[in-house]
């Protein structure tokens, strides 16, 4: 057999294998993607919460996308405490002014950024939240101060529809 013929044969087999592999990969994708959030989950609407009954120093917990959301009406001391912290003391530096646009209201996902437990209210060394699972301490702005959690508790997208109603999402 000549050199030329060998090459042609190799090319044919390579091409066949390559085209076959592309097809196999294309078939695998739908089987994987079907486990991603489906259209109805993605469309899940925002939640509106009536906060008129919430007094300063108290927290309301509501469910949004299957996770608890803490809505805290903070006292002046809590706000002062949160705003007086120096950035270099923080594990995950974020200004309280950025986390709570309206200082009286702190809205955040009540999920510990370590492994997803729900932290306890008014507990811990920093007067904020304390996660009982692995001992993460959060301050009055929901920022991580001590313990294994890497980040501050997440602030979701939200807005005040009117003075008494918060729309989360």
């Amino acid at each position: 057999m000549s050199e030329k013929k060998t090459k042609r044969r190799d090319f044919l087999f390579t091409a066949t294998t390559a085209v076959g592999a592309v097809g196999a990969a294309a078939v695998v994708w739908p089987m994987i993607d079907q486990m991603n959030p489906d259209a109805s989950v993605k469309a899940l609407a925002s939640t509106e919460v009536d906060v008129s009954a919430l007094t300063p120093g108290n927290t309301l917990t509501v469910l949004w996308r299957g996770k608890p959301v803490f809505i805290r009406r903070r006292t002046q001391e809590e706000i002062d405490e949160a705003r007086s912290v120096k950035m270099e003391d923080l594990i995950h530096p974020e200004k309280d002014e950025d986390r709570a646009k309206n200082p009286e209201w702190l809205v955040m996902l009540g999920v510990c950024t370590h492994l997803g437990c729900v932290p306890l209210n008014d507990k811990g060394d920093y007067n904020g939240w304390f996660c009982p699972c692995h001992g993460s301490h959060y301050d009055t702005s929901g920022r991580i101060r001590k313990g294994p959690a890497p980040w501050n508790m997440e602030v979701p997208k939200y807005e005040f529809v009117n003075a008494n109603t918060i729309k989360i999402g």
């Binding site: 739908p30 089987m31 993607d33 079907q34 991603n36 489906d38 259209a39 109805s40 989950v41």
Partner: peptide
């Protein structure tokens, strides 16, 4: 019907 409408590639599967 949920599979047919909402699940990603559900109709195909």
């Amino acid at each position: 019907e949920h599979i047919m409408r909402d699940v990603n590639y559900g109709w195909l599967i």
